[in-house]
Design a protein around this nucleic acid. Structure first.
Lengths: 351, 351
DNA sequence: CTGAAAGCGCTTACAG
DNA sequence: CTGAAAGCGCTTACAG
């Protein structure tokens, strides 16, 4: 008999426990999947042996036979490891809160140029290493995603969608959020309000900006030529954007994300502008840190964590039954204004 | 012939392309794994058919046959989704930067009580859904990890290790870092220096504290009875800790992590203490945000991203050849003091 | 209630 | 250079 060398792994297989138990391999399999047909004493006997032999079923073999991997693929946009880190980590947290209890593994990938062109996201599905895919904040240009609508794989978009495509998507109301944030500033008496915008080819960037524009329009306020500055969801780019906004004479700024607001805060500080005394600032997302920074950031809560959890839940249900209605995705938290320390009535605070 | 219903998935198998090509399935398999024995024209023909039929090999079937899954499991400590988020996201970034190019999937799990007791981390390995495991910042009490030393699975600990066990582990020099941070404060003329400590059952918490104590001792400085306060790696807990430190008359604080330093910054601000004029503060980790916050945080760079990447690289090599020397893990970045805006010479700045 | 057998879709010696 | 065959470790109708 071959002795396994010290420390080498010899795998106990289902066949081994069947033999030891004196039952067939099918019986063991049925017991393990909790089939009601097997009487209790057989069940107990098998279970005992499983324990005694420390048998671990191979999920790989099971996946092959069952044709499911019990894994969910999460695709981050390519900048997710560099920009808006908290936002995406929060999203992972939300997804994990659903996948873990449901017994799904979560594999996380980030898009890269090659990744997209070569349809790597699709490979996860087609090569069967994932049962479903969650696509975080796709770009409006990610037209290839429309293909997904035709293939009937379980998938969902989070925090965005693709132009002219009716794909399952869980997202907050960015337009309303942007509107709310701007309106708050207007109510505080500000008239010259600037905006630091995120990528306009991302729903989250474009619609928050639309919200800003609409609020200004509704209040009969003109938007100065330099009042909208690209922030690229980036702290440093946003800092520069804020500098330009200050030069253009704005008294308040709506940054399209908390991260960009942090950038503005930094620039404002370095320019010796006091917040909110000299300039009011509101962000959007309500990242965890925004309540803890000083001054604490006035912002609009987006709750990417809950939204992501919702999406994960949807996709898990979809795996179990393919005809889950998209309406499940409608139950998304509404944006909510959180007033903290970076906004004040215009001119109310002494200079 | 059965027509697939609209939108249903009919899988193209290797057998199908073999048939279409008029070769055997083994030939296709060999071509796909780049075997040199197959002549070029056969190779070309097969590859063309693969493309034409949009054949996608099943990674599941391949995993079963090859007995590897090309997946790496990443285990986060249970609080990782709530505390020190940037730290762990940074770690994921580092790991992903190695796994993605090497063609490994990254599955991320978080420990929970049940997870540990039921050896879920081991299941990833034993059930073959992961080829290796990366354990992020284990607790010194995670004694079960010592078992891992006996089983010869590829694995590595990051940012910590287990008591009395010689396990492969990649970590920065926390002791030196804590020492450095404290020494910097001492050189600035501070004598009453407090410490906000992380969990003492985590290497990162315990050793940074030791570094602080040693620096004080070396300088002949006594440590007041209330000068060490638990911060639990938590922003709010650290804020309270900072309050107590202020009461105890300290003029400088070394926080055992940037996150805890942010908590202190918040409390100091709310107590109307100016940083660094009234109190100097240094953190440790150098999270991305620390350069961008205002005042920008003086800290010690730990570079969890690079350390994690190193660990991932180690484990990937280990999968390929089991006898990779642990010494590879020694090439870890040394801690580095980054002086920014939260520290100043004691009494130098006017009150 | 339980077993024998086919099948999931690959890989890999082994012949030839 | 290439094919037939066994094997990876399960699941699941189908008989009995």
């Amino acid at each position: 008999m071959r002795q396994p060398s010290v420390g080498s792994r010899k795998r106990v297989r289902m066949r081994d426990v069947a033999q030891r138990c004196g039952v067939s391999i099918s019986t063991v399999s049925l017991v393990l999947s909790g089939d009601a047909r097997i009487p209790e004493d057989t069940t107990r006997k098998v279970l005992q042996t499983v324990k005694a032999m420390e048998y671990r079923p191979s999920v790989i073999a099971r996946s092959l036979a069952r044709r499911i991997s019990r894994t969910i693929g999460v695709i981050l946009p390519e900048f997710a490891f560099n920009k808006n880190q908290s936002f995406y980590y929060q999203a992972l947290k939300g997804i994990h809160s659903e996948t873990q209890p449901a017994g799904f593994k979560m594999v996380v990938e980030a898009t890269t140029k090659g990744f997209i062109e070569r349809r790597f996201y699709l490979r996860l599905l087609k090569e069967q290493s994932a049962d479903a895919i969650i696509f975080l904040t796709p770009s409006l240009n990610d037209l290839f995603l429309s293909e997904m609508g035709k293939e009937n794989y379980p998938f969902v978009l989070v925090g965005g969608t693709v132009q002219d495509a009716d794909l399952p998507s869980a997202k907050g109301d960015d337009f309303a959020g942007g509107f709310m944030a701007t309106e708050h500033l207007i109510k505080q008496g500000h008239r010259a309000i600037g905006h630091i915008s995120g990528f306009s080819n991302y729903y989250i960037g474009a619609d928050r900006k639309r919200g800003y524009e609409e609020a200004m329009k509704k209040a009969g306020l003109p938007i100065g030529p330099d009042w909208i500055q690209e922030g690229d969801f980036d702290v440093d780019v946003s800092a520069k954007a804020a500098e330009r906004l200050v030069q253009s004479g704005v008294t308040a700024i709506f940054a399209g994300s908390d991260m960009m607001a942090y950038g503005a805060l930094k620039a404002l500080h370095d320019l010796q502008k006091r917040v909110p005394e000299d300039i009011s600032l509101v962000g959007m997302d309500d990242l965890e840190f925004s309540a803890n920074s000083r001054p604490a950031l006035t912002t609009v809560r987006y709750d990417i964590e809950k939204i992501s959890a919702l999406a994960a839940n949807f996709v898990i249900k979809q795996i179990q039954s393919p005809i889950i209605p998209k309406s499940l995705l409608k139950d998304v938290p509404a944006p909510e204004l959180i007033v903290r320390q970076t906004t004040a009535r215009r001119g109310q605070v002494a200079t």
